[in-house]
């Protein structure tokens, strides 16, 4: 399945979709925030091609995960960086894969500890089946159906490639 997906093309289409989403919603100077690590890689590419004026933000959601008591402290240690005040701003939150929705919930909780944004839109490169929370993306690179036990992962940062593992691949 990985061969069918052109990451470069997905990124171009996402950038275009974000642009028209912002136009439709009248979002001026949106702030883009990528979720580490894969989401931050995607956000870097999108931020560059959209030529956004505000600096790119990065979130490390390790302290907001809901699996701490069973999995312990996540090994990702680089801190979150939101370089500008997020109060009353429109945020484009970027992740690589939308699966259960738990990462997005954690990311939104963390964002609100930095301030009160005017809105948050979600852009993901891959939307896959298996949602456990009522979360949907506003901009989607590609929607795929995977069974339980099948996984898709973004490898990077250079080059960005998708890797599929599990049953049936």
């Amino acid at each position: 399945m990985a061969d069918d997906i052109n990451v470069k093309q997905l990124l171009d289409e996402m950038a275009e979709a974000i642009q028209s989403h912002c136009n439709d919603e009248n979002y001026v100077n949106p702030l883009m925030i990528g979720i580490k690590r894969g989401g931050a890689w995607v956000a870097q590419q999108l931020h560059q091609s959209l030529e956004l004026s505000e600096p790119l933000g990065e979130l490390n959601i390790a302290f907001y995960r809901d699996d701490f008591s069973t999995l312990g402290l996540h090994p990702e240690v680089s801190p979150s960086k939101l370089p500008v005040d997020i109060d009353h701003r429109h945020i484009i939150l970027v992740d690589d894969v939308l699966y259960t929705g738990r990462t997005i919930r954690a990311a939104m909780n963390e964002i609100f500890d930095f301030g009160r944004p005017a809105s948050i839109s979600l852009a993901v490169m891959i939307e896959r089946s298996g949602r456990e929370l009522p979360i949907h993306a506003d901009i989607i690179g590609k929607t795929i159906t995977l069974n339980q036990g099948e996984h898709v992962k973004l490898l990077g940062p250079e080059p960005l490639t998708l890797s599929f593992t599990g049953n049936g691949t």
Binding site: F63, S78, P79, S80, K81, F114
Partner: peptide, 16 residues
């Protein structure tokens, strides 16, 4: 290093 940045935030608290 990661936790140090929490002290510089609007809300100086994480739910861990």
């Amino acid at each position: 290093e990661s936790f140090a940045s929490v002290g510089e935030r609007h809300v100086k608290k994480v739910p861990l």
